[in-house]
């Protein structure tokens, strides 16, 4: 047996082990529970009305939100509306992740994510397939493809339904584009999302949440929502909303926290630390 015959497999093996980070991947499988210490007031009790601060919304979104009446969620077809992929990590949920592998190559072909509470299944295709055409239907979780950036799983999602950037009336359009990054730290995952919205955001909206591994993942909350009209005699075709200038909650939040109207109405400026100085001057 020649030396070449021995060295060729060795060289191949060395090349494989030292492959560039693009092919590196970590194991995200398991059950993960969110930590609500970050942005807790928005995530658990829920955002207050007329608190748009920190969201890079544009004037179209602001006007949309000011016309939004919470009663709209009581309309029967709105009752079972769930969060989009761009918002769902903010909500109460447990996240289960598992892999799907090609039986012949053992390459990962898809990563599945199940978010309890809303019973939402998200498939992140890892096989390089293209996104559907523009005219395909949109869903709450959209269509996702993923890749490994070193040890970070980066997911690109399109075809997401109209929803909200914050659940107090700030709309997200059906043209949003979402990039997620899942970063593993031992038994914790940091999730970072970057949302662009050509209709309702002036700048990308960047959020982050943290998960810790749940080693006793037996609890699964199901929510098979079925809507119903529980208000006899209500006008089926009526849509609750506020006419321009008639939102009754205009001063509630800003008075409570002694903030200027400009601050609570949000916009890209309110995302940045510099805005704190402006607030001090305004006071």
């Amino acid at each position: 047996m020649s030396l070449l015959k021995w060295t060729r497999p060795l060289v191949l093996l060395t090349a494989f082990v030292a492959a560039p980070s693009a092919s590196a991947q970590v194991d995200l499988t398991g059950m993960w529970n969110p930590q609500f210490t970050e942005d807790q007031p928005e995530r658990i009790p829920g955002p207050e009305l007329l608190d748009y601060a920190g969201i890079p919304l544009n004037d179209f979104a602001r006007k949309w939100a000011l016309a939004w009446a919470p009663d709209r969620l009581g309309l029967q077809e709105h009752q079972c509306q769930v969060h989009t992929a761009a918002y769902i990590h903010r909500g109460p949920l447990a996240l289960r992740i598992w892999e799907e592998r090609d039986p012949q190559t053992q390459n990962i072909t898809a990563i599945h994510m199940y978010t309890s509470t809303y019973e939402q299944n998200r498939v992140v295709y890892m096989d390089g397939r293209p996104h559907p055409p523009e005219y395909a239907a949109h869903t709450w979780q959209g269509f996702s493809t993923g890749k490994w950036d070193g040890n970070v799983l980066t997911v690109h999602t399109t075809h997401i339904k109209q929803g909200w950037h914050r659940r107090n009336g700030i709309p997200s359009s059906d043209l949003i584009d979402l990039t997620d990054h899942f970063v593993l730290h031992g038994d914790a995952i940091t999730h970072i999302s970057v949302v662009t919205d050509p209709v309702y955001l002036s700048e990308p909206l960047i959020k982050s949440e943290d998960y810790v591994r749940n080693t006793n993942p037996n609890g699964n909350w199901l929510w098979p929502c079925e809507y119903v009209n529980e208000l006899p005699g209500s006008d089926r075709a009526k849509v609750p909303h506020y006419l321009p200038g008639e939102n009754p909650f205009m001063d509630e939040f800003r008075s409570k926290y002694k903030l200027s109207l400009d601050a609570v109405l949000g916009g890209p400026e309110t995302m940045y630390p510099d805005y704190m100085e402006k607030l001090k001057v305004a006071k």
Partner: peptide, 16 residues
């Protein structure tokens, strides 16, 4: 896990 949120914000701001 408790140290992650602060790092997260910094990382998000700097990196993205």
């Amino acid at each position: 896990a408790k140290t992650i949120p602060a790092l997260t914000l910094a990382a998000a701001a700097a990196f993205f």
